[in-house]
């Protein structure tokens, strides 16, 4: 939680600067690349987040890895976090930045989970319908979970719309359980 709050402050500062420089999208791409490296490369993550490594070593590593690949704004914010000993918040900054960007643009992040892979037309129809019903732009993250048996499940913000067979049975199970308990 503390890391998230720190990440939010840095993300807010970065987003404000990127908005002023009109490089919001580019900075988000930079952060996505950094996040990818952190997720994919365990040695890189361990080195960057290790408390036993010096700031100069970490700054040198950042310059070496991202010096010519990300915008100066993105690199500067990462260096600033390392200089302030806030590198543990780097993994959170991407999600916070994206959330700020979506808030600013009126976009909602939607997570769609289906029992089978959705076709392009199904995805398109679903997003169009959601955008119309929510009256907002949609960013979707699709995934497949065969445990759903059939159908799909859509979640956004604090809401879940469960149209899966597993969800239907779960609701039915819960209803029957509550009815049984009420009979006592």
């Amino acid at each position: 939680m503390a890391g998230e709050r720190v990440g939010l402050r840095y993300a807010q500062a970065l987003f404000d600067a990127a908005s002023n420089a009109n490089v919001v999208e580019s900075v988000e791409s930079d952060l996505a690349a950094v996040d990818y490296h952190l997720q994919a490369n365990g040695d890189f993550r361990a080195f960057l987040l290790s408390p036993n490594r010096g700031r100069d070593e970490k700054l040198a590593l950042l310059d070496k890895v991202f010096g010519d690949k990300v915008t100066a704004l993105s690199l500067n914010i990462l260096k600033l976090m390392i200089e302030k000993r806030r590198e543990e918040a780097i993994p959170d900054i991407k999600a916070e930045y994206s959330e700020l960007r979506r808030l600013a643009s009126g976009t909602v992040q939607v997570y769609v989970t289906s029992a089978v892979e959705l076709s392009d037309s199904e995805k398109k129809d679903l997003l169009a319908n959601l955008s119309t019903k929510l009256n907002r732009k949609i960013e979707a993250d699709f995934s497949v979970d065969f445990h759903l048996v059939g159908g799909l499940k859509v979640s956004y913000e604090d809401f879940v719309i469960d149209g899966s067979v597993r969800g239907t049975f779960s609701r039915l199970r819960e209803t029957l359980r509550q009815d049984t308990l009420k009979q006592a």
Partner: peptide
């Protein structure tokens, strides 16, 4: 099922 879900989405 998916098509019904999309069309009946609330």
């Amino acid at each position: 099922l998916i098509a019904d879900f999309v069309s009946d989405l609330e």
